[in-house]
């Protein structure tokens, strides 16, 4: 389904992020085939050039592997997957800390809040 894009940041990076999120959650498993450039362009509603750029960059970051005449696949390297998870986690935490520091809440309170919310969400998942 077509994505909503932030118009101030490069579209191809947002596409890569889309992949990274799904790699981190293993929605896209290691070694799994991914749609072709054409297909992903139509699916996400982007210019095929952007898809091309994204795939090229992902290949350089070893997130995907591409061989001739064969659909691209997610990397099979577990280290890369864990690197991606760490990367996303770091980003999220950085953003969070940045916004929390703006309102100057003490660390303890922050940590308590996080634990509480996390547990509630986990329980919510079990009940559902």
């Amino acid at each position: 389904m077509p994505m909503q894009f932030d118009q101030r940041s490069p579209v191809y990076l947002q596409v890569i992020r889309w992949f990274k999120e799904r790699i981190a959650t293993e929605e896209l498993e290691r070694g799994q085939e991914i749609p072709s450039r054409r297909e992903i362009a139509a699916q996400l509603g982007i210019n095929p050039n952007t898809a091309q750029k994204a795939y090229k960059e992902m290949e350089e970051q070893h997130l995907i592997t591409t061989e001739r005449n064969v659909p691209s696949k997610i990397t099979t390297d577990p280290e890369i997957v864990s690197k991606v998870r760490t990367e996303l986690l770091n980003e999220a935490v950085e953003q969070f800390v940045h916004s929390i520091q703006a309102i100057q809440v003490p660390l303890e309170e922050v940590v308590t809040k996080i634990e509480h919310l996390y547990e509630t969400k986990e329980r919510g998942k079990i009940d559902a």
């Binding site: 139509a42 509603g45 210019n47 095929p48």
Partner: peptide, 14 residues
């Protein structure tokens, strides 16, 4: 508009 914009993400762009 969405339908028309679709064509810009299709293979007809190539």
């Amino acid at each position: 508009k969405e339908q028309i914009a679709w064509i810009f993400s299709s293979h007809y762009m190539e």
